[in-house]
């Protein structure tokens, strides 16, 4: 574009600078949850699996702040221990899918041609299998638990990362700055790995942060369905599953507590992911 309307354009799209309160609050929530997960045995007031028939469906009391479930187990303690599987699963999925996705996306976007076409076709097929469906299939094949679903979901999410990376890399590749590097005599590999990759990674990373929330919800759903983490292990999804029976009797707390834990963590992760996308997206000329 040439001369005129820079000022007009900037004005036409007024940007609200979001207050960072929600962002910082979300970081705090995530930090607390992570610490709780890591130091669960030190923090939790009770053994999460300790059955106490004297205190079945206890409401909130000084002894049990968030009450107990049908077996008298302390809901707070179970929630704290549940944070372990809740956070670890998504972390593994996000990290592995991001690494694999970025590498494949870089390959497809940078090399183009038949590699791009073949990878694109493979991604299209995997896209047709939603992550939760792949996870359910993995359970059907390899049995219940979290190992198979985590691997399956890493495979399911990698194409999302790869496609985003591919699009970004392909658009970077056509930018004059890449041509400029070539004219200066830099090799294609150097440009791709040392210059283009670092330019696209922050955007992809921010997007992967958003995936964390989805994965967390989906793995919890799997446990809720009785296909993931198995009772009596403390896990948010499994806790809700077990607490379902009590709902009809009006005992909401054992179900609502882990449910709120899921919601709060997902909100926090999404707020962080969106804020990161906004900040990073704003810095790179589109």
């Amino acid at each position: 574009m040439t001369t005129p309307t820079m000022a007009v354009k900037v004005l036409r799209a007024p940007r609200v600078r979001r207050g960072n309160i929600s962002f910082n609050l979300s970081l705090a929530v995530l930090a607390v949850m992570t610490l709780a997960a890591v130091f669960a045995p030190l923090i939790a007031p009770y053994d999460p699996d300790a059955v106490d028939f004297a205190a079945i469906y206890s409401g909130p009391t000084p002894a049990h702040w968030l009450g107990t479930d049908a077996l008298g187990r302390d809901t707070l303690s179970r929630m704290i221990f549940g944070a372990r599987t809740a956070l670890l699963g998504p972390l593994l999925v996000v990290v592995s899918s991001t690494i694999v996705g970025i590498l494949l996306g870089l390959l497809a976007g940078w090399r183009g041609g038949w590699i791009d076409s073949v990878l694109g076709r493979i991604f299209d097929v995997i896209f047709a299998f939603p992550a939760l469906l792949i996870a359910i299939m993995a359970v059907a094949l390899f049995g219940k638990g979290l190992v198979a679903p985590v691997i399956a979901m890493s495979i399911a999410y990698a194409p999302f990362v790869a496609r985003l990376t591919r699009t970004l890399v392909a658009s970077e590749r056509s930018r004059p700055y890449v041509a400029a590097y070539r004219v200066q005599g830099f090799s294609g590999g150097w440009i791709a790995l040392r210059r283009v990759l670092p330019n696209v990674t922050p955007i992809v990373g921010a997007q992967s942060t958003l995936n964390f929330g989805y994965v967390l919800a989906e793995l919890a759903a799997l446990s809720f369905l009785g296909l993931g983490v198995q009772a009596p292990t403390a896990d948010w999804g499994a806790m809700i599953n077990e607490a379902q029976a009590g709902l009809m009797g009006g005992y909401f707390l054992p179900a609502i507590v882990p449910a709120m834990a899921v919601v709060i963590v997902v909100v926090a992760v999404n707020v962080i992911g969106e804020e990161l996308s906004d900040r990073i997206g704003g810095g790179i000329p589109a």
């Binding site: 930018r175 700055y177 041509a179 590097y181 004219v183 005599g185 670092p198 330019n199 000329p285």
Partner: peptide, 27 residues
């Protein structure tokens, strides 16, 4: 090859049209 690339770039350099796009935004 590396030698060809370096030789070519010492022969010819280019200044591109759009200075907003021809510089790496991160560097």
């Amino acid at each position: 090859s590396r030698a060809e690339r370096l030789a070519h770039s010492r022969s010819v350099q280019m200044v591109f049209q759009d200075p907003y796009l021809s510089l790496d935004p991160r560097i």
